[in-house]
Nucleic acid binder design. Structure first.
Length: 224
DNA sequence: CCCTGATTCGC
DNA sequence: GCGAATCAGG
């Protein structure tokens, strides 16, 4: 099997949507989950939480066979973060979409966010690892979505409708009949649209010493 | 033992 | 580049 454009596309979409490698491999067919993972890595898609979801009664002992007990000569340098993703300090997008929209959907591409939070004119500021100190705990959104969206949703923006240019922000919860994705045009360089970038990347800078962030890939809405 | 993703490494 | 083998964790 070769990685055709379609297969890569499916892989990317499913991977970014939270499908497991096994599911992806099964859907694509003819390949093992290792192949999926390996390809995903080569595509620069890696870095995904590995939630062990045992709710799946699927058995795939494909890559399980090797009577060779490796003496483990090579240690495993666990590192190499953010390879291809520059601003991909992406927090898991699992807010309460419904509530979020209802709360402040007034904000538009105007990128004006007169919020109490410390947010730059761009709409949001990336937080450097050193910036977010322990004293301030931003209390991220609840963990509700198990990263297991149904592969077939209604008409809305379904899983397979996702592409590089539309917002992948989940609307609703996976499993619900009306679960879908935002589908709006993405903020270039991000997986979400401008609006949802504002939610996903809410930075909380210490109101003191707010140094100007030099690289701000987010230049606001850009029509093209 | 099952699953998961991550990584290595021979092809 | 590909993916099986392997590792590491839940």
């Amino acid at each position: 099997m070769s990685w055709t454009e379609e297969r890569i596309e499916t892989l990317t979409k499913m991977w970014e949507s939270g499908s497991t490698a096994s599911q992806i491999a099964e859907k694509l067919g003819g390949i093992s989950r290792n192949a999926v993972i390996g390809k995903a890595h080569r595509l620069g898609l890696k870095s995904r939480p590995s939630p062990v979801k045992a709710g799946d009664s699927d058995a795939k002992p494909a890559a399980k066979a090797s009577p060779t007990p490796t003496p483990k000569p090579a240690p495993k340098p666990k590192a190499s973060p953010a390879p291809a993703a520059p601003a991909a300090a992406a927090p898991k997008p699992e807010p309460a979409p419904a509530a979020a929209e209802a709360k402040d959907d007034a904000e538009e591409e105007g990128s004006k966010k007169p919020v109490a939070r410390s947010i730059g004119p761009g709409g949001f500021l990336r937080q450097n690892p050193g910036d977010q100190g322990p004293p301030t705990t931003p209390a991220p959104p609840r963990r509700l979505v198990p990263a297991r969206p149904s592969e077939e949703i209604a008409d809305k923006t379904s899983l397979l409708d996702l592409n590089d240019r539309i917002c992948k922000w989940p609307i609703g919860h996976p499993g619900e009949p009306d679960f879908h994705f935002c589908g709006d045009k993405v903020n270039p360089g991000f997986p979400y649209c401008v609006e949802h970038c504002g939610h996903a990347y809410q930075a909380q800078l210490p109101r003191r010493d707010r140094r100007p962030p030099p690289p701000l890939p987010y230049g606001g809405p850009r029509v093209r």
